[in-house]
């Protein structure tokens, strides 16, 4: 049961990162590799705020804001001019942006080449139910993710902008012909998804206790695995896949040890699932 708790906390960070990637893929059909760069920028901003204020809550907010700004900058400066090009063009640009961010972050005037400790004072009291203990930081991470997911669900299902995102994801051309300002809706979608990535960066750094320039490397492909498992562009499938993958990783390692590197498991699961369901667990069949 203790492992289950760890899996849920880790899954919360996977989901927060992957859900933005899924939202952006859904609306633009771009595999936004640079999303992991946004995650690092969010973690860095959160780290700076935590170092000067000691508040994890403020750090998460700062990470979300920095993530939103960075994501919108990538959209406007990099993707916007190439939206009418074949999809591999923004994909290549996205890989380039991700490498650029990781290299910049490794400069001494940003994060530098070495990890920074981020041993946060747990913002919530630890919980203990029988033999199961939940640290205040893990609880904070899970509650933050839950709050953001509820917020996302409300925006998606209840607001006009959420309806517009769904309409654009279904048929971008028709959405435009229906008077929807597609550019503006894509911008808000990018800002929201990127804010989640920024928050995920801070949550992961707080949970693991360190921030470093290359912390986006593993999430860059693991988030992609989660999105594909959930069904490309299926936001709620991404939630299930994110928690499922984290739980599977944690439980397998707890029960069988490191038979394989933890991160290799994600790809083994992906390969096995795609052999049975090529469209992912919750993806729709392509006619």
């Amino acid at each position: 049961m203790q492992d289950l708790v760890s899996g849920i906390a880790l899954g919360s960070t996977y989901v927060l990162l992957a859900i933005g990637l899924s939202m952006i893929y859904g609306i633009l059909r771009i595999i936004h590799v640079a999303h992991a760069g946004v995650y690092v920028i969010g973690a860095w901003a959160g780290y700076l705020v935590w170092r000067s204020t000691g508040s994890l809550l403020l750090a998460v907010i700062a990470g979300a804001v920095a993530g939103a700004v960075a994501g919108v900058a990538v959209l406007q400066l990099v993707y916007r001019p190439m939206l009418d090009k074949p999809r591999y063009v923004p994909l290549i640009a996205s890989v380039g942006v991700f490498i650029l961010v990781a290299d910049l972050m490794a400069k001494p005037w940003l994060l530098g080449p070495n990890p920074h400790q981020m041993n946060v004072k747990p913002p919530l009291p630890a919980l203990r139910v029988g033999d199961i203990g939940v640290s205040g930081t893990a609880l904070f991470v899970v509650l933050t993710a839950a709050l953001l997911l509820v917020m996302l669900w409300l925006v998606f299902s209840r607001t006009q902008v959420g309806l517009r995102w769904q309409a654009i994801a279904a048929d971008r051309e028709l959405a435009g012909a229906s008077g929807i300002d597609v550019n503006r809706a894509v911008l808000s979608n990018f800002a929201f998804g990127s804010a989640l990535a920024g928050a995920a960066g801070v949550a992961y750094a707080a949970y693991t206790g360190s921030v470093f320039a290359t912390m986006g490397d593993v999430p860059s492909y693991k988030a992609f695995v989660v999105v594909v498992l959930g069904g490309l562009g299926n936001v709620w499938g991404t939630v299930v896949a994110g928690f499922g993958l984290a739980l599977l990783e944690t439980l397998l390692i707890a029960n069988f040890g490191y038979l394989l590197p933890r991160d290799a498991l994600a790809f083994i699961v992906l390969i096995l699932v795609l052999m049975v369901r090529p469209r992912g667990l919750f993806g729709r069949a392509v006619a």
């Binding site: 607001t159 006009q160 902008v161």
Partner: peptide, 8 residues
């Protein structure tokens, strides 16, 4: 435009 974040 901000009204689009209101109830649909």
């Amino acid at each position: 435009p901000l009204r689009t974040f209101g109830r649909a």
